[in-house]
């Protein structure tokens, strides 16, 4: 029997159906399409070192749970929810075991390495920008947990408001309110720098 070539233009629902029927290439295509978003979501909860492994865990979990995907939400939204839950599970487990979780705030050193090259281009401009980014990171860390979570999912994982609401199982109005408060506070804090 000649193997059939995977139709790369197939939409997510069609690929999910094929993957459920044992087509691993179809799931591979879903991984290629969505893994960056999954990684960016995980990156908002854990540090860079952990994000790769947690994103992998999330996608493997999605594969083994494909039967429970009922198509009511978009595949992307369903996947994001799995990624968020996987991150929260890891954080809870680490806390229970008395271990420290590397958070996105702990990544300052990694970012500093990247900044060395940038500074050579426009030292003064980059220095001001770096101060602002450092300040933003500090202010983010001081936000209430839910505000920080929503802010990061919106701006860094580039999720829209409905996706965040579905991912966190909250009303979209809650997302708007928390986001507004977070941005208001961050703008006020950053005003001191810029």
């Amino acid at each position: 029997m000649t193997p059939t070539r995977l139709d790369l233009s197939a939409d997510d629902s069609a690929l999910v159906l094929m993957a459920r029927n044992g087509d691993r290439d179809a799931f591979g295509e879903l991984v290629r399409r969505h893994q960056r978003r999954v990684w960016m979501v995980c990156r908002q909860y854990v540090g860079a070192d952990e994000a790769d492994a947690v994103a992998q865990d999330s996608l493997v979990k999605a594969f083994t749970s494909l039967d429970s995907f009922d198509g009511r939400a978009a595949f992307n939204t369903w996947l994001t929810r799995i990624a968020i839950n996987t991150c929260l599970d890891l954080i809870r487990r680490r806390k229970r075991e008395g271990l420290r979780v590397v958070t996105p705030e702990d990544d300052g050193e990694f970012e500093a390495i990247a900044q060395v090259a940038d500074d050579e281009i426009d030292p003064e401009g980059r220095s001001i920008q770096r101060q602002a980014v450092d300040r933003l990171r500090e202010c983010e860390a001081n936000l209430p947990e839910r505000q920080r979570e929503i802010f990061r999912l919106r701006f860094y994982a580039e999720m829209d408001l409905d996706e965040i609401a579905a991912g966190l199982s909250v009303h979209v109005g809650t997302v708007k309110t928390q986001l507004h408060r977070a941005v208001h506070r961050l703008r006020r804090e950053l005003g001191d720098v810029r």
């Binding site: 960016m40 990156r43 996105p104 970012e111 980014v133 933003l136 990171r137 701006f155 860094y156």
Partner: peptide, 15 residues
């Protein structure tokens, strides 16, 4: 504001 946020986001993408 958007510029600072975008800068932070792009640095995350370095990883």
């Amino acid at each position: 504001f958007e510029a600072v946020v975008e800068e932070r986001r792009s640095r995350m993408c370095n990883d």
